[in-house]
Nucleic acid binder design. Structure first.
Lengths: 233, 233
DNA sequence: CGAAAACAAGCAACTGCTTGCTCAAATATT
DNA sequence: AATATTTGAGCAAGCAGTTGCTTGTTTTCG
């Protein structure tokens, strides 16, 4: 698994660069078979991580010899690459929609939290791989976009927090940088135990989480209005 | 790295007791060299994970050929085993001390949180490996104690939360099981970014965290006493 | 048909681990 | 003190199996 100076970038990269003939619309070709293989690989990556998953395991799970995978994908790395880019593309679209609404910070935060929980199941593999293998992937130019996208995500969340502090919705002594890390960690790591078939749905879990995070563990003191809303909006 | 039906236990079986004195009950011997090798391996495990770290990398980092490691350790698994058991032994001792004090739930919680942050640096490798490789290690009887210890940890934390709800210190509508998971996740995953040489010390970070988690993001309403303590105790 | 998909076989590099040996320092015996 | 023995630590070489990937051929099927 040497770096192997392949220059292809992320998924939207245009060149299939496969041999002589360029079959129409290849590369991004979306045969169902191809997508099925991606899903199978994603499941394994989510379970065992990227490095610890072998191409032979992927082949076995797909009922195919490992060599046959290379008819569909350039390399094992190309497989995660597609999984990761799909995740970030989807995530960024969701975020765009949320922040473009220009809602109150507390409302925007709720939308972000819900979006996070709702993405856990569909993008389990991407989230797991990024968490467990960020350092490793960072070595490769191919995966530079991962760090860039993460920075963008951080900017979006932090802005919502900062806006909330500025508008008086959140406590003014909030360290938004650290708060973001706590939120991000607890949200994304939930990928390890959250399943939509469990006791709580993604939205219910998001609401539980918001209640905890907005109002805290502590019981409101007796002299405080017991009916005050958990969060405004 | 298959489970491998564990046939040879090697050395101690055949060898008769050494002459006059017997020390070094084999394996548990703790020369400084041995400890140094453990530390080196721990750093690599923390950086790359257990499965992705090779014995040759450990050897290289120690300035030794990989084969020489087997003079000190039975196997690569034996190395993580020692790292993990050391962690749990230390953690349980700390917990014992905390819960034996029988303090108020909010105080006990604070102690638990501080203990968690303070363990991050010293036990970085153990915490990282457990997080990223729990599923894999669970396959082996050798590592059964990991799951058992984790369950014990969960019991301890959950009891503190339940006590807090019962005593009225924490809000009564708290789902303590879910709350524990959120707390655990955000605390333990901080191992990825926390360094004691950073902006905040472990205790300072613990206090930031407690402030967030006890009182929440939301600004106390105007009619509430602005001087109410963040947590009692 | 002819393209898409899979197979069979294998390569070079790497995996955890074992073996037989060296060698200096510590310990025991004379 | 001088000699003999044991021990701790390591090296060099290599094992059997696994890794990602390649190549040439065969099957499947619209």
């Amino acid at each position: 698994m040497a770096p192997k100076s392949r220059t292809t970038l992320s998924a939207p990269a245009t060149r299939p660069r496969r041999g002589t003939r360029q079959r129409s619309e290849q590369g991004e070709g979306s045969s169902q078979r191809r997508q099925a293989l991606l899903d199978i690989a994603a499941d394994l990556f989510a379970e065992q991580g990227f490095r610890s998953t072998t191409v032979r395991q992927i082949g076995d799970a797909a009922g195919v010899l490992s060599g046959s995978l290379y008819h569909h994908f350039e390399s094992k790395e190309a497989i995660v690459d597609e999984i990761l880019s799909a995740y970030f593309t989807s995530l960024m679209a969701t975020y765009e929609e949320i922040v473009n609404k220009d809602s109150e910070p507390a409302v925007a935060l709720r939308h972000l939290v819900r979006a996070a929980f709702n993405s856990l199941d569909e993008h389990r593999a991407a989230i797991t791989v990024i968490q467990n293998e960020r350092g490793y992937l960072n070595q490769f130019p191919r995966f530079e976009y991962v760090a860039e996208s993460e920075a963008e995500v951080r900017r979006i969340w932090t802005k919502v927090l900062d806006d909330g502090v500025a508008s008086g919705a959140f406590r003014e002594d909030l360290d938004t940088a650290i708060t973001y890390r706590f939120l991000r960690d607890s949200l994304w790591v939930a990928v390890r135990w959250f399943t939509p078939s469990g006791r709580l749905s993604a939205d219910e879990l998001a609401d539980q989480y918001l209640k905890l995070v907005m109002s805290g563990l502590e019981k409101p003191s007796a002299w405080a209005n017991p009916d005050r809303p958990l969060f405004s909006g």
